[in-house]
Design a protein around this nucleic acid. Sequence first.
DNA 1: CCTTGATCCTGTAGTCACTACAGGATGTAG
DNA 2: CTACATCCTGTAGTGACTACAGGATCAAGG
Lengths: 143, 143
Amino acid sequence: MQQITGPRADRMTIGELSQLTGVNIETIRYYEKIKVLPVALRAENGRRVYGPTERRILAFVRRSRELGFSLDEVRALLRLGGPDKASCREVREIAARHLDDIRARIGDLRKLERLLTKTVAQCTGTTAPDCPVLDILDVQGSK
Amino acid sequence: MQQITGPRADRMTIGELSQLTGVNIETIRYYEKIKVLPVALRAENGRRVYGPTERRILAFVRRSRELGFSLDEVRALLRLGGPDKASCREVREIAARHLDDIRARIGDLRKLERLLTKTVAQCTGTTAPDCPVLDILDVQGSK
DNA sequence: CCTTGATCCTGTAGTCACTACAGGATGTAG
DNA sequence: CTACATCCTGTAGTGACTACAGGATCAAGG
């Protein structure tokens, strides 16, 4: 009688999982502790054992984090993609909200980029008594 | 005999400084502790007293933080703008490096925006068995 | 003079998403 | 059998704050 998880070849240690997914070992344990990942099965010696399902979940978490989702959002997405993967609508809402955040951040950063570019351009780079960078930062009422 | 700091009207409490600069009281004390701000003078009752100079410094710190400089960078800028404000070149270098960071971040965010936009657009919003958002996140080898 | 409420003080702990390390128990190769 | 790698738990550190506990002091009103 085999395990449901499949053949031996698919069962891996935390180190192997780390290599395959590019997620730090300590981070994997951390994800388990804060319930982003399910509690891992243990071998007889007490070490964590992972299968392809865990690998898929962790890859999903990693990708989501790369896309800037918070761990809270990732937890929500995992719940929605889980057993009763009912509401694609909810998933879309989370992603759309996140997209709004990203657009706002891009806008802020570009404003900032323009300001800094302009300022640095004024800079001669020589030793000067009135540095425009310090000046622009120094203005008190410019918010 | 007057204090060097000037007339009474310019001397303010931490609460007033907080109001004027928009920086949280706890944050001001925090900045002092980690040496972003100089140690504040104290009144006879032990309370912190601030003058226009401190106000200018704190406004500078606030502005820099808004522009995304780290507190380490702010400390460096303050040092450079301080007693011997010699090297505008160094200031420019810090600002330029920071600008590179900002541009890189904008690039990343825009890539991410395109990907998420495309994906969310594919979403019908109805209850579907294969949600494209979860799908795109689910792909294991797409790094 | 006394009370009330605002403001201040110090110090500690919590946040997010990890990372790093201490100190110990196993596993694997030569 | 001895190295050395890998794993385990648990705690503490990071950056830039925020929040709170527990106490002192101040300003205004009765």
